[in-house]
Amino acid sequence: MPDSPSGETSATAPANNHIQILDRAFEPSAMYQAMLATDVHHGALVTFTGMVRDLAAKPVNAMFLEHYPGMTERALEDIIAKARTRWVLGQVSISHRVGMLYPGEPIVFVGVTSTHRREAFEACQFLMDFLKMDAPFWKKEFTPDGERWVAAKSSDCEAAKRW
């Protein structure tokens, strides 16, 4: 078992940014409800949830998520700040798992509120595209054939370049 960064850390530096690095399973619907409950000023709420896949062709028993405590929170704050220069956003909420994960468990939740849907949709995609390129997380898959670090995809870099 690789070294595991233990403990939950979170940083919330502008009040409307909510960033959480979680070392145990979380419920995206709770994040969604929290955003819904605290924001009456915006007409649009867009969320994205990424989950651990277990594909028949590429079976995965478990996944280990490593990160760089300190830099992770900072990188996510920077990505949100970048998004806020492009769109007028209300709340931005990012939760990301670390540690051991199993198929079906959420890895990442991104939620954005804005006045209109277009901004919220675009900002949510922007945040995910940059999270995948700039936030210091690394995945290791445990498969029936052994364990392997997931290789970065060039398509992820291309996705961020379109902005």
Partner: peptide, 10 residues
């Protein structure tokens, strides 16, 4: 100074 492979989060 931190060294690491290309990131694979999300």
């Amino acid at each position: 100074v931190a060294f690491f492979p290309p990131v694979t989060g999300g």
